[in-house]
Computed example of a mutant assay.
Amino acid sequence: MMSRNAIAMVASLGALALNGCTVPPSQSAPQSAAEALRPYYATLPGDLPQANAGATLDVSQPIQRIAFGSCNHQHRHQTIWPVIAGHDPDLFLMIGNNVYGDYGYRGDADLETFADAYRLQASHPEFIAFRAQVPMLASWDDHDFGPNDSGGSFAFRERSEQLFESFWRSSETVRARPGIYESVTTGPEGQRLQIIMLDTRFFRDPLETQPYSYEWPALGSYAITDDPDATMLGAAQWAWLAEELAEPAELRLIVSSIQILTDAHNWEKWGNMPRERERLYEALAARNGGGLVFLSGDRHSGAIYYGEPEALGEGVWELTSSSLNYSFRSGDNRDREPDPLRRSGFMSDENFGLVEIDWANGRVTLDLKAADGSSMHAEQLRFR
């Protein structure tokens, strides 16, 4: 394990170079702390943790049922996996906090607690059996990316990406670029489903915090920024997203680890960067056809939302599912967080989301499922 002093020395080398201090002429000055750390990472053992190979997604076939979830702690029970499998999904989306790698993390560059979290998750029989039956795609959130609420300023994000891509057996396309964003289109013409998995961590600028106040509501401490340069996705991912949305599809699922529509709290959300959210709406408004649904997690509660953003120019539904095995409360907590966009309770019991597509009639059912498989709340919408 690299000591904190060693980390500081490596990071200082990058900082000195950036500040114009000289380095030996035989050396190329690192342009960032991340670049300075790469030679060290190259010396670490290459046997990174991996999940079992799992089922393969046949992209030529139409998808009718997708399950998804977030907030799965590797040290907690894994009883929800056979329940989800019992609903026979064609695909499962892990959309963030898939493990809690920051549990016990003390700031080492190796991210050993993250590697240990993946190893433990890979060993659970229920998880192994589920992967053998159901194809999976994954994105991350803060606790499997870095420390709580971390973003692009996390110094060891490149190591985190290595661990993620190894464990989830990411495609060569994902491995070839910074960040872990990904898009998959399935089905023949007339039944094309595009799944866009956004990366809201690797490139995101730091969030602004509210000044301390005794009157703070118990709904988070992040402020709204009007900084025109603040980014959620970063330039490369924004350009990629525009290209993906130019592709034809009859239905698109936009997967974000954090919530998109709501402004009812001050935790992490797209609304903390309203210019970026407007940019997202504008990009989606310019898409090459197809219905639209948002999927999100993060909140340790589940709910269904409906909004009509002006920049989008149409109504859109969002299903938030969290958490798979790490709930903080129980029951319906809607009174704690009033929200005019929410069309359901704010359900804090363990849960997963189910998206069912009726291609023949152009309908989608969004269903928030309890850990026993029963429905907490469902909504049906038309996408054509």
Rank of each mutant, 00 (worst) to 15 (best):
M2K: 08
S3W: 08
S3A: 10
N5E: 13
A6P: 00
G14K: 07
L16Q: 12
N19H: 15
P25A: 15
Y41H: 03
A42E: 12
T43C: 07
L44S: 00
P45Q: 03
D47G: 09
A51R: 10
A53T: 13
D58V: 09
S60V: 05
S60Q: 12
P62G: 07
I63S: 04
A67N: 05
F68S: 01
C71P: 10
H75T: 09
H75S: 09
R76V: 01
A85H: 07
D88G: 02
P89G: 06
D90C: 10
L93S: 01
G96A: 11
N97C: 15
N98I: 04
V99M: 08
G101S: 11
Y103C: 04
D108G: 13
A109H: 09
E112G: 13
T113N: 12
A117D: 02
A122G: 12
P125A: 07
A129V: 05
V134R: 05
D141G: 07
D149R: 03
G151D: 08
R159V: 04
S160E: 05
E161K: 15
L163M: 07
S170Q: 09
R175N: 11
A176G: 14
G179T: 10
G187C: 04
I195E: 04
M197Q: 10
M197K: 03
D199M: 11
F203H: 07
R204D: 02
T209E: 15
T209I: 13
P217I: 03
Y222K: 15
Y222S: 05
I224A: 02
I224R: 11
T225R: 08
D229R: 14
A230G: 02
A230M: 00
T231F: 06
A235L: 11
A236L: 00
L241D: 03
E244G: 01
E244M: 14
E247A: 14
E247M: 14
P248C: 11
L251T: 05
L251P: 00
R252C: 02
I258Q: 10
Q259E: 12
T262N: 01
T262A: 07
W267D: 15
E268I: 08
P274N: 03
E278H: 10
R279P: 05
A283Q: 13
N288D: 13
F294W: 14
R299T: 14
G302I: 02
A303F: 06
A303S: 14
G307A: 15
L312C: 04
G315I: 12
T320L: 07
S323K: 03
L324G: 01
Y326R: 10
N333M: 12
N333E: 12
R334F: 06
R336I: 01
P338W: 08
L341Y: 03
R342Q: 03
R342L: 06
S348G: 08
E350H: 11
I357L: 13
G362C: 06
T365H: 07
T365Q: 14
L368P: 06
S374G: 14
E379Y: 05
F383C: 02
R384C: 01
